[in-house]
């Protein structure tokens, strides 16, 4: 038990600063959809336009520079985003092909918060640091659950000894709130750690694909519209979400990758790539999509809490606040331990 106590103390202390930062930045990120919509960061096509959407190639042809990727957002109907070498990400009206002005209502605060939360503004080093912090957090939760037994064996569940010194009351709050939210916190910590592996895992997957296609980017190739149509035929039950062309730094040589997903709450998280050969136009759903990327796709919602409507987000935020209290009381208990007089 002494060993668990040491593990709990040091694994928690090592990651507390990170976890406090993650809890504080995570709080607004839970509501980023609502904040983006309210602060006018979504693109809206002009209301006056009517009529059908243009074929994708008509829109792509008007792009400024070579198109690297095309994507759509559920919350932006009738808008196509083109990512080009020259102009970066441009939103276009799907009915007129005209570029829409991206609303830039001040600096992208939420983007900055996300950069801090996901990688400490430090690229790969930030991912690694947060991944390690996540592993330590898992260890801290596990050891905390083990220690719950000896620390509460004389107490009824949830009992706060109000007549006892502050330190005992802090301990009781720490134990109650920690054990009540342990399962949620464990899931968020594990899925958060998995999310830090996103870039390396996708890099591994891309490196595995089509090493023979390097020379294929030359010569005649399918248009984005043809690739999209071919992908739809290859996977009629799935909904296209984005396509990555071979010209993109994250593209696959020789293929247009069309990312598609299903329509149910579960399968809409499970992105599947349809590979369209740029020369033959032949499309094929990648049936051997690796399990680790499916795990990554499932880890995202379970970390963000964005899959059960606004009430789930509010619950997520409250659990986040409880976690802050657990961290704060834990720190208080450690500071108390540093003093000569020991209690509890």
């Amino acid at each position: 038990m002494q060993a668990w106590s040491v593990i709990h103390r040091w694994s928690s202390l090592a990651c507390t600063a990170f976890l406090l930062m993650l809890c504080l930045t995570g709080l607004p990120l839970i509501f980023h959809d609502e904040i983006d919509a309210a602060s006018g960061r979504l693109v809206h096509p002009p209301a006056g336009e009517h009529g059908p959407e243009l074929p994708l190639d008509r829109i792509a042809d008007r792009a400024d520079g070579a198109v690297q990727a095309i994507y759509w957002k559920d919350e932006e109907p009738r808008v196509v985003h083109l990512v080009t070498t020259k102009a970066g990400d441009t939103a276009c009206d799907a009915r007129t092909a005209l570029p829409l002005r991206t609303p830039t209502a001040g600096p992208d605060v939420m983007g900055g918060v996300l950069m801090l939360h996901s990688r400490l503004f430090a690229g790969l080093a930030g991912y690694i640091a947060l991944g390690l912090a996540g592993l330590l957090a898992v260890l801290a939760i596990l050891s905390g659950v083990v220690l719950y037994a000896p620390f509460t064996r004389h107490l009824r569940f949830g009992e706060i000894r109000r007549s006892r010194p502050l330190r005992v009351r802090m301990l009781d709050h720490h134990n109650l709130l920690g054990i009540a939210t342990a399962a949620w916190l464990a899931v968020v910590a594990v899925t958060g750690t998995i999310n830090t592996l996103e870039e390396p895992l996708f890099a591994v997957w891309r490196a595995d694909r089509r090493p023979d296609g390097i020379a294929a980017a030359q010569g005649k190739s399918v248009t984005p519209g043809q690739a999209l149509a071919a992908a739809r035929r290859a996977a009629p039950a799935l909904i296209p979400n984005s396509m990555v062309l071979p010209t993109s730094p994250v593209g696959t040589p020789g293929d247009v990758t069309v990312w598609m997903h299903g329509g149910s709450p579960l399968t809409e998280r499970l992105y599947r790539p349809v590979m369209v050969d740029v020369r033959s136009g032949r499309a094929e759903l990648d049936r051997n999509f690796p399990w680790y990327l499916n795990a990554l796709n499932l880890a995202r919602p379970l970390h963000f809490g964005d899959y059960g409507g606004l009430p789930l987000k509010i619950i997520w935020a409250l659990l986040d606040i409880v976690t802050i209290v657990v961290l704060a009381t834990g720190l208080f208990l450690w500071f108390g331990k540093c003093r000569p007089r020991r209690l509890g």
Binding site: G158, E159, I160, L176, L177, I315, L318, L319
Partner: peptide, 10 residues
């Protein structure tokens, strides 16, 4: 439920 139970005890 965990939130409500915690709040009740706190």
């Amino acid at each position: 439920t965990p939130l409500l139970v915690s709040a009740r005890h706190v």
